[in-house]
Design a protein around this nucleic acid. Sequence first.
DNA 1: TGACAGCTTCTACAAATGTAGTAGAATTGC
DNA 2: GCAATTCTACTACATTTGTAGAAGCTGTCA
Lengths: 125, 125
Amino acid sequence: MKLTDAEWQIMNALWAEFPATARQIADRLGDEVDWAYTTIKTMLTRLANKNAVKEKKNGNAAVYEPLLTRQNAQRNALKSLANQAFDGAFGPLMHFLVEDQKLSKTQKEELLHILEQGEQKGAKK
Amino acid sequence: MKLTDAEWQIMNALWAEFPATARQIADRLGDEVDWAYTTIKTMLTRLANKNAVKEKKNGNAAVYEPLLTRQNAQRNALKSLANQAFDGAFGPLMHFLVEDQKLSKTQKEELLHILEQGEQKGAKK
DNA sequence: TGACAGCTTCTACAAATGTAGTAGAATTGC
DNA sequence: GCAATTCTACTACATTTGTAGAAGCTGTCA
């Protein structure tokens, strides 16, 4: 499941707190984008068709909640990027990230920490 | 500069070795995709319009070479992903990667190594 | 009980993307 | 020198994406 740019916006707003109505999502997005309410509604319908969100009727109005979790979406996006831009390998991707992005000392320490933890849990393949 | 899926394919083939003619690129892509030669030509023209590649005439035929480097493309893609899916922060992205992707022991060690090196060069910002 | 306000579904439409055909110019092999 | 091959430039067209208007329900408040 691949999300488009606009879809990410919507999903991010939905993931922030759900279930949510189209109106709520529109309000949350108010700062970031300048979309007509119906645009958001259209996107939500499309996302429902893709099974990224579930649309539940509550009387006249609809309430939405994600079917695709943020984590899965992130995973998919990373996977796709890795394939496309890094020959499918996560190693080089990370390598690139660590080398290219100047991490703050804190971030580095955090990473070290994560790495160590993984180490302890045993390097499961 | 944002590349589409198809454009990544072409660029990857070009980055592999350049300058290259459309024919060469087509040959390299032969295994992966099943595109007509003219499709590849069209993509190359579009990429030239976007200034991602330079088209040099060599007699009748054209020779291509990247203007956009692979590194920059990777950087852009990562940045874009970070913004879209990780609130613009690389930290969480990396966090996610390290936690989610089960890295091999070797990969982890390598990462640690990179981190340490960075450490020595001084934690610039 | 009717006028609003807000919600929904449909339809629309331009731009981007994926994919390729056609026709004519250049190159080449004999 | 000409036929076969190969390129190139142009055009085309379906699908996806971004964006939204129109028109018709529905609930509510005076």
